[in-house]
């Protein structure tokens, strides 16, 4: 199911209930790989699945208070903003998410042929 909303293509990814708390899920969509998280608060956040430092897989990091620690070299990344925390620097692409009818949707930047 795909709905066009502004420039974003909302793609339904997984059932909200199937997401385990503080455990990243790997989502692939047209060559993009996204790490999807559900926090203790119940909020959902999606982020590009690679650490800007050395491409560590963020979906497998330890999650604490809306931050993920990259499993490769322990860079700490604030998930809602994508900002790598001091003293390291850098930024990870974030994705919009929404929960609707029990499904988690991820907003991908418009892919024309799919925006039906």
């Amino acid at each position: 199911m795909q709905i066009k909303e502004e420039q974003l293509v909302w793609v339904s990814a997984v059932a909200y209930a199937d997401l385990a708390i503080n455990t990243g899920r790997t989502i692939r969509y047209h060559g993009e790989e996204v790490a999807l998280f559900k926090f203790s608060s119940g909020n959902v956040q999606a982020i590009s699945n690679r650490c800007p430092h050395k491409n560590g897989v963020l979906a497998e990091g330890i999650v604490c208070d809306e931050h993920v620690f990259c499993p490769m070299h322990d860079r700490k990344i604030h998930l809602p903003s994508g900002q790598v925390q001091a003293p390291d620097t850098g930024c990870v692409k974030t994705y919009a998410t929404k929960v609707q009818d029990g499904l988690v949707y991820i907003g991908f930047c418009g892919v024309k042929e799919l925006a039906g």
Partner: peptide, 10 residues
Amino acid sequence: KQDLYEVVEL
């Protein structure tokens, strides 16, 4: 399997 090893291909 679902929580840890699944990759969701959309």
